[in-house]
């Protein structure tokens, strides 16, 4: 555990909580892509199946349980409790174009051809692109609520901090995981355009809106 890994995890946790609170307090999931949230629920489920087979630490186990619980709670709020506010017409990204290639890649490129390992690999690849339906929705509507941009910033920052964590671990622990690193770079790059808008607009008190 190093400072980048810990702040990365906390940033990830903050993102998840911000989104849950936003939906809960406003009683609305307007502007939120339910498809991205389903993908994240799949990501956590397929990655954390090792909860049943291996114990790493209290920290590790509790964070996994919290992430999974929050992911399903978010999906429940969007598709059940506040379904009437869900903007399905604008959430039109075709997720099969992500899930199918990512599934194929996980079978072809992995550390070990075993059931749990392929699911772990699938979750790493899927996470790297799971935000695309949300970004697609924002580009379609041309705007995002400020609280939604805080969520996206924390979510993007988390993987960027993990990149620093992997650099740290490479130098000080001789540890590296090429699958996680490559997917993590892809994931972080996808946020770069958003980071630019967040810093130049949202942090200066303006609403995030895209030119028509």
């Amino acid at each position: 555990m190093n400072v980048f890994r810990l702040t990365g995890d906390l940033s990830h946790l903050a993102a998840i909580i911000i989104l849950l609170l936003k939906i809960w307090k406003s009683r609305s999931c307007a502007g939120i892509s339910g498809k991205s949230q389903i993908l994240f629920a799949i990501v956590f489920t397929t990655r954390y199946l090792d909860l049943l087979t291996s114990f790493i630490s209290i920290y590790n186990t509790s964070m996994k349980v919290i992430y999974i619980g929050c992911a399903y709670a978010t999906v429940y709020l969007i598709y059940m409790k506040f379904r009437a506010t869900y903007d399905g017409n604008h959430d039109s990204f075709r997720v099969e174009f992500l899930v199918v290639p990512v599934g194929g890649l996980a079978v072809l490129v992995n550390h070990d051809f075993s059931f749990l390992e392929i699911l772990w690999t699938f979750s790493i690849y899927l996470e790297s692109v799971a935000i695309l339906p949300q970004l697609f929705m924002i580009s379609k509507t041309g705007e995002a609520e400020t609280i939604t941009t805080h969520y996206l910033f924390c979510l993007g920052l988390y993987r960027a901090l993990y990149l620093l964590n992997w650099i740290w671990r490479f130098y000080f622990e001789s540890f590296f995981d090429m699958i996680a690193i490559v997917a993590g770079v892809v994931q972080t790059v996808l946020y770069c355009d958003f980071f630019y808008l967040y810093i130049t607009k949202v942090l200066k008190g303006k609403k995030l809106s895209l030119p028509a």
Binding site: R5, D9, H12, R47, D50, S54, I56, N60, M63, K64, Y67, H111, W120, Y162, N165, F170, S174, F175, F176, D177, M178, I179, A180
Partner: peptide, 10 residues
């Protein structure tokens, strides 16, 4: 460097 064996990250 070693390739990852156990996944200790989240």
């Amino acid at each position: 460097a070693d390739e990852a064996a156990a996944h200790d990250e989240l």
